[in-house]
Write a protein that binds this DNA or RNA. Structure first.
Length: 548
RNA sequence: GGCCUAUUAGUCAAGGGGUUUAAGACGCCACUCUCUCAAGGUGGAAUCACGGGUUCGAAUCCCGUAUGGGCUACCA
């Protein structure tokens, strides 16, 4: 009995060879310098801000020169798979307009691209052909170590302060004669397939990562599992090798946590004599927790999940800008010079990327978002709030649809000017800043007139309605009338006078306008009163002032 | 423990031997403008982890130390 018998026993149905697959996945026909990138999440049902960083960079790179950005579903760990996860990822990518060129969406029965399947569990035979090849060549072997045995190996290694893993003398089945392996398999013993590592731990090799530059690692000498006993699917490392080779990925963008697997990937590619893709290991997004930092966590940090940004109603533009700022810190300066360019026009440089982790700064995002919203037209703001509300606040959406022009007037307050007003950060807060403009919400309101005397409040409001409110006034006329009223009622119309001789007055113009403001909106902080009154219109103004 | 890797203000960071009394952005503080708020304007506080070298000269190069982070699964 020989290795061929073993290989056929393990993979009786695998008849294609790796040469067959090489032919099925020919080199891509792309222009010089075009990059092929991939977004390869595992379908765990959420999308992390770190995933987003990778996706944005992938997209940016691929779009640079008519390359390809494809989506690959890494579902080799089926115990972690969550229903609907791929649809969710598709929706997030679509929301941010990062649609892949090649993909496979099972739920809507859509597949695009010639390098599929793009779902790993559908590529089982492909991986197995590659593994079979390795077994035939004596470069992989079945390992019959049980979970308990491995646990005790790890424990003893930890105790003796040795490196952990199945290597050297711990690789008990590495040199098991083929006959015995066959016998064990026929006996029904469980096994995993391990790589028969050729590496020497004491030997170092140099590796160039586009983000981190040159690094030195010891060779891998661990007989890593490449196929799981549980479902016959490959481990991440092996799938990475096969897929990125066959799909002709040119650039692998992934988190820093993968750097430590480079020795493994290096050996794997060398074993098949495949060309390695270029790697860009991107910084981990960290979070400050007390006085230490840690990897941002979907469980502890709401902002780790992309759903957070959608629920808050951050414009997608702002989120991408913030992410690009993390990707390359010179992005902001570039943006200043190219205010209208698409982010893919930016010359992203992996070298300029920070190689350690980065804290994600919500303040920064807020600032970007605020600036962005302030430069939209009123129509764009309306569209954005409406879209958000349709999803998260149907009641408000209905009101918006009922009063489109009125709503846009509200969004236009202090907007069409060189330095526009900046008071919205994200769409979800617009309602809380404008609800009082709608009669539907302005019902049964309670006023808080601070410590103003109600007699004075009523006097001011009544006097104002009776004598000083003229809807058709210009802003200057309007303001002059208020000043006039202040003088008559004993309030200072000039703040300097008031500051100098506050005892001579009952209060100041600030008190008067605030009282009107509160009566109209319940808030003492609002945008420009004159604008509000113009938009509310005479009927509402009079009604609200009288209702107090 | 082992392997990788990093360390410039609260955050993201520029700077790779002299042009740096260390950019810029966000945040913070103060003042100012002002009918409140949001903006705007002006100004301010705040950073080269530590110790040794190399050098006329070090944030920058070298060596240690400390600290942070990642990995060390039949998870990706």
């Amino acid at each position: 009995m020989n290795r061929e018998d073993l290989a056929n026993l393990i993979f009786p149905d695998i008849t294609k060879t790796i040469e067959d697959y090489e032919k099925e996945y020919p080199k891509r026909n792309l222009e010089e310098g075009a990059m092929v990138t991939r977004f390869a999440p595992s379908p765990t049902g959420f999308m992390h801000i770190g995933h987003m960083l990778a996706a944005v960079i992938d997209y940016c790179l691929a779009k640079k020169k008519n390359g390809v950005f494809y989506l690959r579903n890494e579902d080799t760990d089926q115990s972690r798979e969550v229903e609907g996860a791929v649809e969710y990822i598709r929706s997030v990518l679509a929301h941010y307009d990062l649609n892949p060129d090649e993909y496979e969406y099972r739920d809507i029965n859509e597949i695009k691209g010639n390098y599929g399947p793009y779902i790993q569990s559908e590529r089982k035979e492909i991986y197995q052909a590659f593994i079979k090849h390795l077994i035939l060549e004596g470069k992989a072997y079945p390992c019959f170590l049980t979970q308990e045995e491995m646990d005790s190996i790890r424990e003893s290694q930890a105790k003796d302060k040795r490196r952990i893993g199945i290597y050297g003398r711990y690789a008990k089945y590495r040199n098991l004669p083929v006959e015995e392996a066959i016998k064990k398999i026929k006996n029904g013993e469980k096994y995993t397939i391990r790589l028969k590592s050729n590496g020497e731990f004491s030997r170092k090799f140099k590796f160039n990562d586009l983000a981190n530059g040159e690094m030195e690692f010891p060779e891998n000498d661990i007989d890593i599992p490449i196929m799981k006993s549980s479902n016959g699917l490959p481990t991440y490392h092996f799938a990475h090798l096969v897929d990125d080779h066959l799909m002709h990925t040119t650039h692998v963008v992934r988190g820093q946590e993968w750097i430590s697997s480079i020795p493994v990937h290096y050996e794997l590619f060398k074993t098949f004599n495949f060309k390695m893709p270029k790697y860009i290991h991107i910084p981990l997004i960290l979070k400050k927790d007390g006085d230490h930092v840690r990897k941002i966590s979907k469980r502890l940090d709401p902002e780790a999940k992309m759903s957070f940004y959608e629920e808050k109603g951050y414009p997608t533009y702002a989120v991408i800008e913030a992410i690009m700022t993390i990707a390359n810190s010179n992005y902001e300066a570039w943006r200043e010079g190219h205010p209208d360019a698409h982010f893919t026009e930016f010359e992203f440089s992996p070298k300029k990327m920070s190689s350690s982790g980065a804290l994600f700064d919500l303040d920064k995002l807020n600032n970007i978002s605020k600036n962005y919203l302030s430069h939209l037209t009123k129509e764009e703001v309306y569209k954005g709030v409406l879209a958000w509300s349709e999803k998260y606040d149907q009641e408000f959406a209905n009101i918006l649809k009922k009063y489109p022009d009125y709503s846009m007037q509200i969004y236009n307050i202090e907007r069409e000017q060189k330095k526009p007003r900046k008071d919205y950060i994200y769409y979800s807060e617009i309602k809380s800043k404008t609800w009082y403009m709608y009669d539907e919400y302005f019902k049964d309101v309670t006023y808080n007139f601070l410590d103003y005397n109600m007699q004075d409040v009523k006097l001011i409001l009544n006097t104002y309605i009776d004598q000083y409110y003229h809807e058709e006034d210009s802003q200057d006329e309007w303001f002059n009338r208020i000043k006039e009223m202040c003088d008559i009622l004993g309030y200072a119309s000039n703040m300097k006078d008031y500051k100098e001789n506050s005892n001579n007055y009952k209060g100041s113009i600030v008190d008067v306008t605030n009282i009107i403001r509160i009566a109209l909106t319940t808030f003492s902080n609002t945008p420009n009163l004159y604008d509000l009154m113009q938009i509310l219109g005479k009927e509402r103004v009079v009604e609200r002032l009288q209702n107090v």
